[in-house]
């Protein structure tokens, strides 16, 4: 399986590539979104800020959205999950608009939400195949889908309950960092990638 990780030019992509690379897939970092379309799974990683990433994706936005809607499997992590939505309070620019909804700041006194938080009410099959009870987060914003049916797991920071995972068609997003959630997280990520590509 050929996996492309979109590199928006901000932050650690190395450990994500290593976490995905289990020997059975070929993983490449791709700075050109159009070139990334030529793969079996596209991964939107979770580093940087919304505005910056949205600018980097802008020239390829329509092509990416059409490809994902048309069947190209996509896994978004943290910021990458947020980029699947329409827009964000964090910064200007458009998300891919693959999943309907907005991204807003977490309602909490202490932000960013950095650390390990439990995964509540998991309903996605991926959690049965690769159990993950607790995951590492580093976010100040969260996705608010228009249709609650897309949410496949939740987490809570202070009083704000937000989606930990969404799935719509072949687009999957997780707000946490599976690649930083130890062995169980890496196994879960492998499940998402394999599940997305088949």
């Amino acid at each position: 399986m050929r996996v492309s990780i979109l590199d928006y030019g901000a932050g650690n992509m190395h450990s994500l590539a290593k976490a995905i690379d289990d020997g059975s897939s070929s993983v490449r970092l791709e700075t050109d979104p159009m070139a990334a379309l030529d793969s079996d799974v596209i991964v939107l990683p979770g580093v940087g800020a919304f505005g910056h990433a949205a600018r980097r994706l802008a020239p390829a936005r329509t092509a990416l959205r059409d490809a994902i809607r048309g069947g190209l499997p996509c896994v978004g992590i943290c910021l990458g999950m947020q980029l699947l939505f329409d827009e964000s309070e964090e910064g200007a620019g458009k998300g891919l608009g693959v999943i309907e909804g907005r991204v807003t700041r977490l309602r909490a006194n202490r932000l960013p939400h950095i650390g390990w938080t439990t995964i509540d009410d998991p309903s996605d099959a991926a959690f049965r195949r690769a159990p993950l009870d607790v995951a590492y987060y580093a976010n100040s914003f969260a996705c608010r889908p228009s249709r609650p049916g897309v949410v496949r797991a939740w987490s809570v920071h202070e009083d704000d309950r937000f989606p930990a995972m969404v799935r719509e068609g072949n687009a999957v997003g997780v707000q946490f960092h599976p690649e930083k959630s130890s062995r169980a997280g890496v196994a879960f990520l492998g499940e998402l990638i394999r599940g997305a590509g088949t």
Partner: peptide, 8 residues
């Protein structure tokens, strides 16, 4: 923070 985000 501007380039990489406050979380890092």
């Amino acid at each position: 923070a501007e380039r990489f985000g406050s979380q890092c």
